[in-house]
Design a protein around this nucleic acid. Structure first.
Lengths: 328, 328
DNA sequence: AAATGTTGCGGAACCGGTTCCGCAACACAA
DNA sequence: TTGTGTTGCGGAACCGGTTCCGCAACATTT
């Protein structure tokens, strides 16, 4: 099981190794030489050593993917999509996890550069000056998913429009006393843009909005749900993510309230469990997986020098289900 | 931003590059030389080129992780655990996805070998002769998670014992008419061992058991739940995974049945949503994340030549919650 | 003082590819 | 026939490390 090298091939075929290399990389090689080399390669199952190649070329066929966590629904789905498409295109995905530490995002940008990945897909939360500096330093195409910044190619969810559309819908149904449960602002897209979309819709209708802030964790939303249940001062609770909605639902159940009988609840994201719960949860479906595929396409385009728009929006789809009541 | 090489360091420090290499790898180097080299390295931010190192050493600091899918709860959590620990130990995780195709598992074993990963952690479903052959061929330590085989180091969940314990509990609560919703046998641990653990407990108590088989997908379990709801010929539905339980619950709800009022339902795995649903779901918690960490430890031990047992069991914990009624 | 052992270091080869350069062989036009 | 252009191929250098070998300087033993 010894590694077969290009030298072996050259020797067996009776040619110089430079000729073999030329054969492999599409240089000019005569037909008879071509045949000899081809046969030997077949027989030996020769495969070029990737390290030797990368050492010379200072490049790999890897695309680094920076994710804030490995166990989030959005990240998992997106990775699926990225991996599928990248594999088709002859690239490999190299996932690195930052455990939600901004510092590690920057670290990993440099780290991936050291490993000579061909490109980087970055599922970000915030874009700081230091991120931009890193991206400039490493001289590698970077595609940002889920957040936007004018200086970075980005593929973003239409958080504002989706939130606005959903909020508008709720207004149309007669809800006027709203509670919004959001996340902290350090995640621009989710913490700010998404919230602003909702608030715009609510404000336009002159609704009364009360805001809570929590984390992305299910558990942290439970006490909020309980409190809401006890006060019961609104007709609708709008949550920034489906996981938060799940926590709020639990809290409401703990407080003995039923949904949508006593109060309505909506989520955001379109995680698969939302459809299957009872009651099914009204939410916005974001195409995580397809976004991953598109990101893979786009990073490959960047690698091949094609120009792509700095900012691309994905689609969204309202999922109007049982958890939100129609009042009028 | 040019790459600094060992040659540059040697030149700047006025020594031979072999000396620099020795310095870096802990060879014998005099104190004054040592100081000079150290200073130059500091100033230049020198970092060795990994390709050159790997080319020579035929090794990397990567551990390949073969997963059947990227978006399953179990896989995600396990990867979290693996990644955390591996990072601490100075290794990097390289995840490859097989999209649930056995053929690709074998492919990826060879593929990872080609990439000279130091070790492989394999979240498997079935172990075939061809897998064993591949493992033998590649000459790289492999650690199997979730399945067992006498010829492969494995870290396995106590599927049988956990299922038996949970089944026993249900028997103690007076359930005698049972429906078991399992998965196909190609996944040995889940499709066979887990089922057998339950059946043992049920049979010992002389219960009447009816069996359904479905996939791992939530959606496929919904019609089964509906059918069960309409027939209502049992007091308890035991599901092979929490996702299946989720589907069954949906089906039951569609059929207008309440849980646990009309019928009880249990899951398996301990996914986080089980606790937070209403009713909360009785299940078995498997320590996916910690298992990932342990796997990382174990593969590193294998790399350093330590001997570890061929088979290691993880723990489990019964989560007895609202979805299963106590009949007596 | 000679023989022996240690330590520090430089030179060169090597890992397995890619690429530049130049030469030989051949075809074709002048 | 000579000159010019094209094509195919080999040799050598190079990518950036590691490691083997041998020599010189110094310390230690007899």
């Amino acid at each position: 099981m010894k590694q077969v090298t290009i030298n072996d091939i050259a020797k067996l075929a009776g040619v110089a190794k430079s000729t073999v290399s030329r054969y492999l990389n599409g240089g000019s090689v005569g037909q008879s030489t071509r045949d000899k080399i081809e046969r030997v390669i077949q027989e030996t199952n020769y495969e070029p050593n990737q390290f030797a190649q990368s050492l010379k070329s200072k490049q790999t066929k890897m695309i680094g993917v920076i994710v804030p966590r490995l166990d989030s629904y959005a990240a998992s789905r997106t990775m699926m999509g990225i991996d599928e498409r990248l594999t088709e295109r002859g690239y490999q995905m190299l996932v690195v996890n930052t455990a939600q530490q901004t510092e590690r995002e920057i670290e990993q940008l440099y780290n991936l550069a050291k490993q000579k990945v061909a490109g980087i897909i970055w599922l970000g939360t915030t874009v700081t000056e230091r991120h931009l500096q890193a991206i400039k330093d490493i001289q590698i195409p970077v595609l940002l998913i889920g957040q936007e910044h004018e200086q970075v190619h980005s593929l973003v969810y239409p958080d504002f429009d989706a939130a606005y559309a959903l909020g508008k819908q709720f207004m149309g149904w007669g809800h006027r006393d709203i509670i919004y449960v959001g996340v902290e602002e350090y995640d621009i897209a989710v913490g700010q843009t998404r919230r602003d979309g909702f608030l715009r819709a609510f404000n336009e209708a002159g609704a009364d909005v009360k805001t809570y802030t929590t984390s992305f964790k299910i558990d942290d939303a439970i006490p909020i749900g309980m409190q809401i249940g006890h006060e019961l001062s609104a007709s609708l609770v709008v949550c920034a993510t489906d996981n938060i909605a799940l926590g709020v639902l639990k809290g409401l159940a703990n407080a003995g309230k039923t949904v949508p009988g006593d109060i309505s609840v909506s989520g955001f994201g379109g995680y698969d469990f939302t459809e299957v719960l009872h009651p099914s949860i009204t939410t916005v479906h974001l195409p995580y997986r397809r976004t991953g595929s598109r990101a893979a396409d786009m990073i490959v385009q960047l690698l091949t020098g094609e120009t792509i728009p700095m900012k691309t929006f994905t689609t969204f789809e309202l999922k109007l289900r049982e958890s939100v009541d129609i009042l009028n």
